[in-house]
Design a protein around this nucleic acid. Structure first.
Length: 602
DNA sequence: GTGGATGAG
DNA sequence: CGCTCATCCAC
């Protein structure tokens, strides 16, 4: 009999009574057990000192160089070689350099007023620049793609810019059946048919699969090699070992192809995978077997558990005046429920190594997209807001169009501008985002400028200390196949003139006083019959001779038609980014600068 | 629709 | 630590 830990025998043993479930042929052969699958295996894989690694690779440096990434005066990433010098994220750049004179400090890329794309400038100033995490997002996506490619039947959930959960249950199941064909069929003489338990599992070779966490009594008996002669292994352990094997291969692949080292945790569910991923870093992986769970969790400060790191964890600690998981095991579910209501059940289960949350790819990847900037020097003149808006707009344009490479039909329902005035809480304004094909800086900035006007109203002076610009309601727009016809009838669309009744949604550039002077303003937009949006020329395109403007408007209409075509095409085929037809060639380069650029990236 | 709270890193 | 980003929910 294993006594999981000393001192607290009986009552808590039951807390972990699901660690060795009997596994039957039904479990193995049925396909949709989901989170209750006794052979479930989940991994959390995260990149080591990710931002630092991105910069190191961008600069083609040796992995051994001590490098940190700085954001203004503080550090946001410290490479492992730099940590050897005792540098931590809390340090100021100066202290870090004191600890390591050879330290390479790279400032994150920034958007700079007047520049369309983020870059690495020499004159970085928090008053005029805004940090860009773009490089890291792109690199992150590469890694995620490799997970998905390697595991066509696995589920991959991006958890943050440098972490992903991977559900290995299916890939492992496939391997189990392939490697051990004798369990793929219920034996004729099985006593309970498909509900008979599986035969004893094969011996497991844990060598090279990572660090295997062991229960205390085995662990203290020393000799990791003991586990190889462990007669107590289960089929779940086999499953873990296969996942570890797959995980290791993928990690090696990522390392050789992209250069990043990663650390992974492999266990029966998400929270345990996440927990043991940090057991040993960098460039390593850790496996938590079910039988080791009680000993592993018992002494653990529960505030290290995902979602218990904040107020909830504090409240728990305070309420019961305790700090470890073991301490909390004596608290009944009812008791927790009476004080923590909603959260009680999952807290209770987490403490017992249970986590029923699924690994699920986020369908939209995200529901909103936000770019923000705290202003060291507050905006006083409302007119000074525009420069920041353009910078935020540039970031959003880049990110949205980037996301569209893999998701061409991604569309934001609305755009929101937040501004905080001094100490006051922030105020916001939002509007429906216009349905234009090319989401350029200008399109976004124009929409945002309007919101800005609403927010600052007509105040002569303001005191704005923070600005945030966001897309919300980001979704894949679904469109019918027949709408391709819509493209071919674009001519009709073009004929459609501005004289429409009344609009229920705001046009991007409404003919009103927000726009300066130009007498053409009212003639520089059209309303598409298809999407019922008003599409307008940029302000700077709306100037010049009437013929010129008319020409540009025609181009715009054509592009808009292209947009519908592209959307439809993307929807009806494989999702690859379609090339707009016969457009740009005959187009003058007058205005394409900010346009083509964004649609087809690179 | 707006703003606050929470949490991750 | 200060900053950046995302989600959820009450009003």
């Amino acid at each position: 009999m294993n006594s999981p830990w000393k001192g607290k025998a009986k009552a808590t043993n039951q807390d972990y009574d699901d660690l060795r479930p009997t596994i039957t042929y039904r479990h193995l052969l049925s396909n949709n057990l989901g989170v209750r699958d006794p052979l479930r295996v989940v991994a959390l894989c995260d990149s080591d000192a990710f931002y630092a690694a991105c910069e190191r690779i961008r600069l083609e440096l040796d992995p051994s160089v001590p490098i940190v990434v700085q954001q203004w005066e503080s550090l946001i990433a410290v490479s492992y070689p730099a940590r050897e010098f005792g540098i931590s994220r809390m340090d100021k750049i100066k202290d870090a350099k004191k600890k390591c004179p050879n330290l390479l400090a790279v400032h994150v890329a920034t958007y700079k007023e007047g520049e369309k794309e983020p870059g690495y400038w020499t004159d970085i100033d928090t008053r005029t620049h805004k940090v860009s995490l773009d490089l890291y997002r792109r690199e992150s996506n590469k890694i995620i793609s490799m997970f998905k490619e390697a595991l066509p039947t696995g589920e991959v959930e991006k958890a943050s810019i440098d972490e992903a959960f991977i559900d290995f249950t299916r890939p492992v199941r496939e391997q189990l059946l392939e490697r051990y064909p004798y369990i793929a069929q219920v034996p004729v003489d099985a006593p309970n048919g498909i509900d008979s338990p599986l035969p004893p599992p094969p011996p497991i070779k844990w060598d090279d699969l990572g660090t295997v966490i062991l229960p205390e009594e085995i662990d203290s008996a020393g000799e990791q090699s003991n586990i190889e002669v462990d007669g107590d292994a289960t089929w779940h352990d086999v499953a873990l070992s296969i996942a570890a094997e797959l995980m290791r291969k993928i990690r090696e692949d990522i390392h050789s192809k992209l250069g990043y080292t990663t650390s992974a945790g492999i266990a029966r569910n998400k929270f345990l995978a996440k927990l043991c991923a940090s057991y040993k870093k960098p460039n390593s992986q850790t496996i938590l077997r079910n039988r080791a769970i009680p000993d592993y969790l018992h002494p653990l400060p529960f505030q290290k558990i995902r979602f218990l790191g904040g107020k909830l964890g504090d409240a728990l600690a305070k309420e019961y005046d305790v700090s470890t998981v073991g301490d909390l095991l004596t608290v009944s579910l009812d008791e927790i429920q009476s004080k923590f209501g909603e959260n009680a059940l999952w807290v209770y289960e987490f403490l017992r190594g249970i986590d029923r949350t699924e690994v699920k790819e986020k369908s939209a990847l995200f529901k909103s997209m936000l770019a923000s900037k705290n202003l060291p020097k507050p905006i006083i003149q409302p007119s000074d807001g525009h420069q920041w808006i353009r910078i935020l707009a540039a970031e959003l344009a880049l990110r949205l169009n980037d996301a569209r490479v893999s998701m061409p039909t991604l569309w934001p329902k609305s755009i929101v501008l937040h501004a905080r005035k001094g100490y006051e809480t922030s105020r916001s304004k939002q509007a429906t985002f216009p349905f234009v094909r090319n989401v350029t800086v200008d399109v976004i900035a124009t929409a945002a400028d309007k919101l800005w006007k609403d927010l600052t109203d007509d105040a002569k002076t303001v005191n704005i200390t923070s600005v945030q610009l966001a897309f919300t309601g980001l979704e894949k727009t679904e469109m019918g196949q027949k709408s391709i016809e819509g493209f071919f009838t674009t001519r009709d669309v073009q004929q459609t003139s501005l004289k429409r009744s009344r609009e229920d949604d705001e046009p991007l550039v409404s003919p009103e006083k927000t726009l300066p002077t130009s007498s053409y303003v009212e003639a520089v937009s059209f309303k598409c019959t298809r999407c019922r949006k008003t599409i307008a020329l940029r302000e700077d395109q709306a100037t010049g001779g009437p013929n010129e403007v008319a020409q540009r408007l025609a181009t715009l209409r054509s592009e808009h038609g292209d947009f519908h075509f592209a959307q439809d095409l993307a929807h009806s085929t494989d999702g690859s980014v379609p090339v707009p037809r016969g457009s740009s060639s005959k187009r003058k380069k007058v205005e394409s600068e900010g346009i083509a650029k964004f649609f087809i990236k690179k």
